[in-house]
Design a protein around this nucleic acid. Structure first.
Lengths: 120, 120, 120, 120
DNA sequence: GTGGTCTAGACCACA
DNA sequence: GTGGTCTAGACCACA
């Protein structure tokens, strides 16, 4: 399920966190579903448990999951993270678009860019 | 002219670099204009000259300015940085748009976002 | 393994960088191999860690290696540096050839030079 | 006659020196011809005389010209600089070719590169 | 004066 | 332990 890229400059805890966000946002992991325990995932990925712990802590801080002592961590309701994330992305989209305008890009060109999905 | 936040997770040299990019891209600083000297800016911002040096070195590496021992640093011609910057922004725009799509945003909504200029 | 000449006009960080490039390009250091840590190499060469840091940072910027806080620095895949290096060398070959032509060397002589491998 | 590029990272004294080498090597300036005086050239280029002085000193050290106290500087005989310069360029050509071979370039490709004159 | 390199040494994030 | 950032301050090349 997880792909960790050791060559990436991105810290491992962030790679884990961002993959979880992708899974949760896309619905691969539904609200209420249980995340693997810190120890379990650490063993599975051959990684230090501290690293997993940090990823989980940030996910929880941003409302993507919640943890219950003794039971584990679970995917949160969409309402807990939806709005703030959306707002952040919208702000970023608009500021990037603004930067492209200041390089002389027209509205038509900007709109055209959106229809071309990036490949990666 | 400069706003530095030493508590920011973003390194100081990057804060300086990015502010200069904004000034240059927006035309506040025109091609050929002299940047303040490394030492001068260091004193003014109460920052170590090495930190300024690093910001200037990266600006030069990315084509935003050029520098000469004994003379100073100067804003480069637009052609020197135009394309690379454009490409970076386009990639960012598309990846942000993709993230919004995975939150369920439609193409129509995305396009609508572009017409609303952000205020900042 | 390393030869440093502190009297050389060429900065130390560049001497280190260029030697690493030679090792990586020639295959002495293979993709994925770990470079010595910044501190380790600094002690071994009796050089300031900042100087090593700079060499490593430039190697990474040019795609010869990648580094991760907490883990170390590693030799990159060949595909990451191949093209850019090739282009640089081609430019250098052609400009040197041009200089020799302006000394009156004929095309036949130039071609002949290529078949004689230099010994070093 | 002279083109100085203030945007070039190359020091001005070097730009002057290299342009003289080009003139001398190509025969634009013939053996025995008088170079402009340091002061004269400094005024003409609006440049510090020290800068010119340094260019002339290096040209003389490398055998491209000679100076006579009270009379001025004159272009040297070709035999004074020809061989050493030629040798240096040949060595560089061969070592660059060798580097390209280690990237997998064939002899045929190398030879082909020579026939394509670089444009600049 | 101006940029570039370097040493010495501190502190932080990450694994 | 490992890389990344930063301060303080020195010395060099160049104009």
């Amino acid at each position: 399920m997880f792909t960790l890229n050791p060559r990436d400059a991105k810290p491992i805890y962030l790679q884990i966190k961002e993959q979880y966000i992708r899974f949760i946002v896309s619905g691969v992991l539904g609200a209420g579903e249980k995340l693997p325990s810190v120890r379990q995932l650490a063993t599975q990925l051959s990684i230090n448990p501290n690293t997993i712990q940090r990823a989980y802590a940030e996910l929880e801080a941003e409302g993507y999951c919640y943890s219950q002592a003794g039971r584990g961590s679970f995917v949160a309701q969409r309402t807990d993270w939806d709005t703030s994330r959306r707002d952040a992305l919208i702000a970023q989209l608009q500021s990037t678009a603004q930067a492209l305008r200041s390089l002389g890009m027209s509205e038509a060109e900007l709109t055209a860019l959106l229809s071309k999905r990036e490949e990666v």
